[in-house]
Each structure stands twice: as C-alpha cells, then as structure tokens.
Design a protein around this nucleic acid. Structure first.
Lengths: 353, 353
DNA sequence: TTGTACGCGTTATCAT
DNA sequence: ATGATAACGCGTACAA
C-alpha cells in the first residue's frame, strides 16, 4: 500500500520522540523537556507542541518506564475469586473506592484477582517490575502473597492488616474496638447472655471482632462459655448460628457481618422469637439490606468505598515522598442503632448514646 | 549500609539478565534464549537456570515490551461508572468471564472504567502503547471511545457491537432474533396485544431487541401502535411501563430486561392483575431473581460470563494470528419458559417448543 | 549451540 | 535554553 499518509494524528502507528524532534527542528532532549516540564523557551515549546499534534505523537509507556523507573501504573491485588468481588459488598465497595482514587491521579490500574494461585500471583507481580506501587487486601492472617508483597521493595498499602504488618502501610478500621462498642451497646440494654457469630478462623477482621466481643464481655464480668459460634460471613451460617446460640439460651446475638445477622433474623422469625423483645440482634457492615430488614438491623457501619479511596491516597503519599514513614490510617465506624436491638416501642435511654 | 548481601532470591532489587549471564558464565543472549525457548544445550540451560534462581532474577516487563513489542497485558475497557459494574449483572458476569479467560493465558489485565471521560480514556489507552490487545464493551450506538479504539492498530475485540462494527471483531448474542423468539412465544400462546418495554434509545442491545419485537409483531400481522414504552433496563421503568401499557390494553408484556420485567410483575400484582391469566410477562437475561419471582419469569437466558470468556479467547486468536480475519462470534441464548407466561395450571402445547 | 552488536523509545547527565 | 550521549534491560538478526 504505497502512498500511505502517516501525518496529522493518524490513529495508527504513532511517531516517536525523534520524529517530533525532526519536524520541529529541535533535539529529542528538548521534546522530552516539553513533555516532562523542563525549561524550554515559550517559542520552541509551541513549535514542539505543534509538531506533536501534527505527527500524532504519543509517548511509549514501556520506553518511558524503562528509562525513568516510573510507570504511572499501580497493581491492585484482591485475591478473591472473581465472583466474590461482586457478591461481597465489602469488596465491591472497596474496589469502587480504589478505582476512583486512582483515577483522580490518572493512574493506571492493573487488577489481580484469585485466578492464579497466590504463589503464581506473587511471582508475576514482582516479576513484572512495572508498578509504581501496590494496593493489597489483607484479610487472612497467614498469607504468603501479602507477605511476599510487603517484603518486596515496592511501595505497598495494605487494606486491612495483620499484627505482623505493624511496619507496613495500611488503611483499616478498628475492628476490635468497633465490635466492643456493639457489645457494649447490647450490655447497656441489660442483655447478659450475648452470643457471637464469628467469621471464619484466620480472617483478620473476624478474629479482631471476636477479640472485641470477648473483651467487652469479660470487662462486664459476663460469661462467654458456649456463646461463640463460628460462621463464614454468609447468610446460611447466620441461620445456623442463631439455632446453636438459642440452645445456649442467649438474649442477644452479635454477628460479625450483616449477612449473618440477617440470616439470624430469618431463623428467629421462623421460630416465632420476637426481636428485640426476646433476643436482640446486631450486625456489622451496614449493607443496604440492613436498613430494610424486619426489624431494621442495628449494625456497625463501615464505609468500604472510603477505605479504597484512602488506600489510593495513602499510596500516592508514599510515592510522592520516598522517605515517608509507614502510613497507618484508621477509618471511623459508626454504630447505627435500629429496631433489632431497641424496638420501636421500647425506646431505651441507652439508645441515645 | 555496607556488606548488604544481594544474593539468593533477595526479594528486593532483582538482578538483570547480565547478572545471570555473569554468574553462569555465558552471554546475555544465551540467558535470553533459555528464557524464551531458544535452542541451548541442556548443560548450559541448567547452569543458567541455577544462576537465575541464585540471583533471584525476574525479567523486566518494560524492557521486554520495549524490545519485543509484546507485553502480555490486555486493556479491558468497560466504560460504565464503577458502581454499575457491580450493580448490573450483565457487566459483573461479563467481567467475571473476562477475568477468567485472561488468566488462562496468564495475561495481565488493565481495567478502564468510566472514571475519566471517553476522550481522556481513549487518549490514555492509545498513548500507553503497552497493550497487546483490547477488550471493549460496545453498548452504545454512538460511541467515540469505541470508534477510536477500533480505528487504532491494536487488536481489539468488542463485546456487543454496532452495525458499523461489521469489519471489527466482536462477540455478541443475536439480540434481534432472541427478542423475536420471545415475542413468537407470546404469540403462540394466543396473545395479540403484546406491549414492549424497551431499553434506553441508543443502546445497542435495546435497539436490536426492539427491532426483533417489531419484526415478530408485524410478521404476525399484529399492530404495535402505542405498545412500545421506553425504559432504561431498571426496575422502576418496568413499573411505569406496565402502567402505561395497561392503559393501552395489553394482554402480554415483553420487557427488554429482567429487572424491568420484575418491576412490571410488581405493578401488576399491586393492581390485582393476574399473571399470566390476564397479562403474560416475559423478560430478557435470566438474572437469578427471575426464577424466584412470583410467578417465575419466562425469559431469554444469556450467559454473560461465557461472553467474557469468549471475548478473551477471541482476542488470543487474533494475537496468535496477525493475519486473522475479523472474528465474529455469536453466542446462543435460550428461551426459558416459566409460569409468567404459561401458568402452572394452564400448561399449553406451545410450552413444549 | 553460542556470542556480538544493534535497536526498542525515553529519560537523565553532562556539556555548551 | 539546548544538544550530544549514555544509560534503561531485553530481544534478535547475524556471525562465528
């Protein structure tokens, strides 16, 4: 195909820096300077700009990265099965925030889900050597992927954290204290047999919420014997947990996730047990269904989108200042008191707290 | 910090090809060959492999991309607001499939949502010059982003397509024919006043389903005057559409999405209208709620996850064979006949089709 | 089979 | 302010 014209913003093969230099009659260095904000005379800057438009020039990321060491791309590691990303409100909100936060700085986002094993994922991410930084979810206590990423030389911000991540940068909520607060609320209502439906063992948030529950109970001098049931954050385990805890004779249930709390609500209704008169129920997360359930669910609200947003911001802080100390960001949570603990007719003084 | 040891798989700064060459006593080229499957003697191959392990070598993507022109990264462009990606079952299923398909070939995935304008997105994607190929959703008739991407020299597979994309590669379903089939089903049940709740004007699938509806009706000699209501694929517009179409005196409603159909079901129940005795209702998509509604919803099932999977596969076909002609993949859909059209007690012969 | 030498498109360090 | 020139780390003809 002879006579093909490759001028004027041809969307096809774009020119290189050198082409722009040739057209504008300057050296590559100068073109590079107008690109990266070096000092050039206004005169030549305009000539170069014109030449770039004319040749339809676009910088080559690979070349740029190789030469400068910066790519403008961050790796986002959410090692959960793809379907979980969409089913679990935590991850979807989180991802939403991350996506927004990175877009603010026009950073590219490369996503790693659990399509590969943790070992493979780790290998490929580190091998790529392309990312300016990493955003990584840390929701499991023992996680070789997170360990490897943190140990690497890449600026990394964890979302959630383990105890051993004290020297890493992370954004998180105070799971333990938040759980404590929920239980305190139940105690303040006069409940003494408070059961807990915990998350899966080894989950960071699950363990911390359990610890918070135990702390509040013991501080109040209440027994927790046989009052802890292990669930998995999903509805069905909330159903089962309610059954088990009822056997133990509880007058309140604190589930470590709203979905479990909603499952408990179902089971209690099925058994004809009044909520909150007979058994009060509280959850964690504040998913949308929590406010629409019957009765509406008392819960600890966490803003997962903000969590993602802050994670991105924190990473940028790290990138802008290589000397920066590890960043630890704790986001607030909010106790939302609804009818599943205080009932519409039995408004208690404690509800004002 | 003197005396820092940088040997033995140091997770920090990894060595380069040259380091491996030095340790194993061969040239860089040879090391490169064992990496890319060139011909090397088994003897030296082992030496090199050992040296790579010892130095903790990892290839540098930027350098590799620059030299070879291939990055192993594909751009995924789903230009919808981040929250839609999670709310809309179509996109989440699609994304799931894409994610799986790319992982099969260990391809990296860089995701572009609607955080930037279409123009900015286009500019940055093309500018990056990093992707081996592109996966792009095309759900709007007039879309400069899709136009620009298709016009570029990057191997691109569209998900959904416009008429003008005949020369592009795409995966899609046959929206028009599928819609026709749904309407044929309703006609075969003896319905004559069949209303359609369409999607937003300018949406590719919406327009095609509308066309299919019109075709089936006209072919059967049925009037469509005042029987088309414009919705937006969301529940509320299904509620409204049902109201409007009832005024027009319909005996059946075909909604272009299940969510709208479910909205219609709600509205019909509210008005005490029996489904399907008084009005039959059919949808499109087969979302999970469709089989759990009262009555269960007749619908045209499409497998969005498969759509994403096939999109990835198609792109790989394109990448493996640069001479390949444009790939056009049409995935099957399946008419699921449920009680919203045939009723449990009024099983009609047509249901066996 | 192996090594040499050049090119990939930019940035960065020098001079000037 | 501008222009050579050397990296950046790797792939790949070409030669040996």
């Amino acid at each position: 195909m002879p006579g093909v014209d490759k001028e004027e913003g041809d969307p096809g093969m774009a020119g290189k820096l050198e082409d722009v230099a040739a057209v504008s009659g300057v050296s590559r260095s100068t073109v590079s300077r107008v690109l990266n904000g070096g000092s050039v005379s206004e005169d030549t800057r305009q000539r170069v700009l014109a030449a770039m438009a004319q040749t339809g020039y676009r910088p080559n990321l690979a070349a740029r990265t190789l030469a400068s060491g910066r790519s403008g791309v961050v790796g986002v590691v959410i090692h959960v099965p793809p379907e979980v990303l969409f089913q679990d409100i935590f991850f979807s909100g989180l991802f939403h925030g991350i996506s927004e936060g990175l877009a603010e700085r026009e950073a590219g986002m490369m996503l790693w889900l659990a399509n590969l094993s943790k070992e493979q994922t780790l290998e490929r991410i580190l091998g790529m050597r392309l990312f300016d930084g990493l955003l990584v979810t840390a929701d499991t206590l023992d996680d070789p992927l997170v360990d490897g990423l943190v140990a690497s030389d890449l600026p990394t911000v964890l979302i959630g954290h383990r105890h051993k991540d004290r020297s890493a940068s992370y954004v998180d909520i105070h799971n333990e204290r938040a759980a404590e607060q929920v239980v305190d609320h139940l105690i303040s209502l006069g409940r003494t047999r408070i059961g807990h439906i915990a998350g899966r063992p080894g989950g960071t948030s699950a363990e911390e919420r359990l610890t918070g529950y135990l702390r509040a109970m013991h501080r109040a001098g209440l027994s927790t014997d046989g009052l802890v049931h292990r669930g998995d954050y999903l509805t069905q385990s909330g159903v089962e947990g309610a059954g088990v805890l009822l056997e133990a004779g509880v007058d309140a249930i604190f589930a470590a996730s709203d979905t479990m709390a909603l499952g408990s609500l179902q089971e209690l209704r099925r058994r004809g047990i009044r909520v909150p008169q007979d058994v009060a129920v509280a959850g964690f997360d504040d998913v949308v269904e929590a406010s629409e359930s019957d009765p509406p669910l008392t819960t600890m609200r966490q803003d997962t989108r903000l969590l993602g947003l802050e994670a991105a911001h924190t990473l940028f802080r790290l990138l802008n200042d290589p000397e920066a100390l590890p960043q630890r960001v704790i986001l607030p949570t909010e106790l939302l008191i609804r009818q599943s603990t205080v009932g519409s007719m039995t408004r208690s003084p404690a509800a004002k707290r």
